[in-house]
Design a protein around this nucleic acid. Structure first.
Lengths: 349, 349
DNA sequence: ACAAATTCTTGGAGCGCTCCAAAAAATGGG
DNA sequence: CCCATTTTTTGGAGCGCTCCAAGAATTTGT
């Protein structure tokens, strides 16, 4: 690979002049410029190597997006939520002329990935893995953490998940529902976990306050209607688990309303309902979370706790690009009522 | 920002030793290592700066994905096809432990983006913009171009779009359809363009052989049924144009079958049909292209010319990662018949 | 206790570039 | 034609790191 110096030698000029030909051509006499360009062409030199420039300037012009917890970038792309989030981030990146790096990393390589990533800042998916945070802090790069409880000196953005969860339950109890099932998220890999009433519940998972907060919202909503979350079966599946729907219908046939943690999960349930010929919302109501575009196009269109996912991604990118003082932002949610929820079926089934 | 040398000075050792502490700790005496680590901590040194390593090694450990033509990364994320493509690419990247950079660029900055991108190779979306190709070649980095006719010394992957288009038409003519509309893609920004029979057709667009090839497949399929593509209205909309459905129904009400260039477009039509209370496939048949996951979940589930988009993305990434001799790959397509196509409505409407 | 073998540590070289102050060349005015 | 200006060109410095050959320190064997 020829370098600036090689081209300079070939054209009988200095390194600096060749650099000027490529970066500030107006500074160099036309005749000389052409000679240099000819030499460059002859050597197959395709312009200054970005590596050098990078080292000089110290800017990558890139922000990194790191998926949460145990997920790979591929999982992010599979999830409606993840896609909209990346879309939002990419929107801000497009505007700023900055590259978006999807930084992957398995549990054990993730910290190294943060240490090595060629980016000027990070967006960390929803897991306040303390290791990740300290790793990001060490790099002294701006970063934002999503959907996690982070300290006051850390950029963070989250939605008001608790209120959303409360609103979801209120909507359903308002319709008359008394028999619920909750489809929650398993944050480690493995098969679904079923918590039936009476059994001990999953301990709070450090770092995934997101789930705990929503669960707590469900609890509160149920309490308001004189119901107890302890009587509600909770099923945990990994986010993309296609068997989630089957698990719910098999384990909690008596439920007339199913609360979920994401549109993705709710879609799984809707798909399974179609497969089994179960009528939604006639036989069972289903409520999603996130309000992604997909939720509007399911059959039937889904009732969901909507947030502005794209806006969130965009905001996260902007926070990094602006690199201002750390802020903790809580975004509102809104219950969007569509056709996947209705009054419960008559008791006689 | 402290450097290796700073830490070295603080700990009373050389630059090289500090580097060893971080990269090959087993080489340095435990006692000394601890002293260095303490000094690093005291200085707030978070490990060797990746910039330096990069310069030394010359590898970015990243491959770049550049969207085609006039599209930004955000557009890619919006399109079902684009998402699956990126998903496929990210799958291969995840496996290889490589970062995926979504390189954006408007028409005029795109060439510069290629020149500057901090990547070891490129995947270029479906537009054989000659400038892009030469720009990529100049960098002497491996690259793959998608869905374009490229020379034999260039990596390329495309599907057999012509066969797919022929199969789509055969399916519909086999059902008895004689009145078609084609929803094609406008590759420049702007409002839809309507080509009614008798008018001059759009000239072939250099670089978007993808469209031309499919159009030619439609032509061939129609010819086989003694129909002429010249009698078929062709509407061109930008890929994400939500008005596409309305345009088709408004401009070609007599059509009993609508051929499209993508699932995304077909979804637009299906959405508009719902809005207008038009029965699909009772009143009109709609056929998509790409066979994305979304196509299976529309109402009704969509008949579409399916390709393995994820596999294609994965393959593209692998070609770059492997950096073998250039290959031109043509992937098969398969008509997936679902419920959006049926025999045409009776003449009397 | 001494030479030989082994383990650690060092600092120069070099990755490719851009910046910049200074030198060189060209231009202009009288 | 000479000197003051202006325009071009130059090459050293430095970005932060890793590699590596060579030197220093330590351990081992007899």
């Amino acid at each position: 690979m020829p370098t600036l110096a090689d081209v300079g030698k070939a054209a009988g000029v200095s390194r600096g002049t060749v650099s000027n030909v490529f970066n500030r051509p107006e500074l160099v006499r036309p005749e000389l410029r052409q000679r240099v360009e000819a030499a460059a062409r002859a050597l197959g030199f395709g312009g200054p190597d970005p590596k050098g420039r990078l080292l000089r300037h110290g800017k990558f012009n890139s922000i990194g997006f790191m998926p949460p917890g145990a997920y790979a970038i591929a999982d992010v792309m599979r999830s409606p939520y993840g896609r909209e989030l990346v879309l939002g981030v990419s929107l801000a990146c497009d505007e700023a002329g900055v590259t978006l790096s999807l930084v992957n990393g398995t549990d054990n390589t993730r910290i190294a990935s943060i240490r090595e990533a060629l980016v000027d800042g990070f967006i960390l998916g929803h897991s306040a893995d303390i290791g990740l945070i300290t790793s990001a802090q060490r790099r002294r790069l701006p970063f934002v953490i999503l959907e996690s409880d982070a300290g006051p000196d850390i950029n963070s953005i989250k939605i008001d998940g608790r209120s959303g969860a409360v609103a979801a339950v209120r909507h359903l109890t308002g319709l008359g529902h008394r028999h619920f099932a909750i489809l929650s998220v398993r944050r480690t890999s493995g098969p679904p976990i079923v918590h039936m009433p009476g059994q001990a519940k999953r301990p709070l998972l450090a770092g995934f306050s997101l789930d705990d907060e929503r669960l707590d919202g469900f609890r509160q909503g149920l309490t308001e209607a004189n119901l107890s979350i302890d009587d509600v079966p909770i099923i945990e599946t990994t986010p993309g688990d296609p068997s989630a729907g089957a698990m719910v219908f098999d384990c909690v046939p008596e439920a007339t309303a199913i609360l979920t943690m994401s549109d993705w999960q709710a879609i799984t349930i809707l798909d399974e309902a179609v497969r089994r010929g179960i009528d939604v919302p006639g036989h069972v109501s289903v409520i999603g979370f996130d309000g992604t575009a997909e939720s509007a196009r399911t059959t039937p269109p889904m009732t969901t706790v909507a947030q502005d996912v794209i806006g969130k991604g965009r905001l996260a990118a902007r926070m990094i690009l602006d690199n201002a003082a750390p802020r903790q932002i809580v975004l509102p949610v809104e219950l969007v009522v569509r056709a996947s929820t209705a009054a419960p079926r008559a008791k006689i089934r």
